[in-house]
Amino acid sequence: MLELTDICKAFDKNTINEKVALDHVSLSLESGDFVTLVGSNGAGKSTLLNAVAGMFLLDYGRIMLDGSDITHLSEHQRAAYIGRVFQDPLTGTAPQMTVEENLVMAWKRGQRRRLRKAICLQERSFFREQLATLGLGLEERLTTKVGLLSGGQRQALTLLMATLRKPQLLLLDEHIASLDPHTADLVMDLTCRIVKEQQLTAVMVTHNLEQALAAGTRTVMMHEGRVVLDIRGAERKCMNVLDLMQLFEENSGTTLNSDRVLLAQ
């Protein structure tokens, strides 16, 4: 499904600030895998997702998606196959445009955009139906500018936009981290439901270890640009947060340096 082979990425190359963010990472996802990706701050989790999404080109390595080599495709070309939700709720939507306009732009992801009226009655009722599934009352606010919505509403909308047209791969980068606890739970539930219903292949970055084990089908841990842990199936089922931390220490030689990781309950 997704096949990362030996990918490397350094920032500020050949300067004193050179920072190796991805250090020969190889990872292979099966179709239907829902990976929760954890690791200390600066481990390279976001960089890994951004590399897959094509926000920059790799220094080394190869990325295959569904059998085709996407290593050299640009970000907008890969968008045809990849749905994304970002950490910042402001990133995924256009604030000056309405809810329905945002949705129709997402509905056209990977399609040819034409000189045709974008929103007709048919789209509108489809969007209303889809928004109703979020349970946030957004179906009544199709013509509201997105900038007027709350962070949680925007994030739920971004999630819907990313999955409106089924993506081959869904990338979620700490997409609930900046929401208040109640809204975070709501968006998390939505995420699990959508991934299950559409049988998506997904990677979700989280700093909450409990959540990393509770959600998804597989947990990958990164440290200093490398994958240090990859667990799934029965092994993962009978694991708790403490086991996970212990395993991390054994495999990485350090303790988890992120206080957020421990305290996030």
Binding site: L90, K108, M161
Partner: peptide
């Protein structure tokens, strides 16, 4: 309005 957003929706 939001260049990152529309690029993620596949627009050049």
């Amino acid at each position: 309005d939001n260049e990152q957003m529309i690029r993620a929706q596949g627009v050049n």
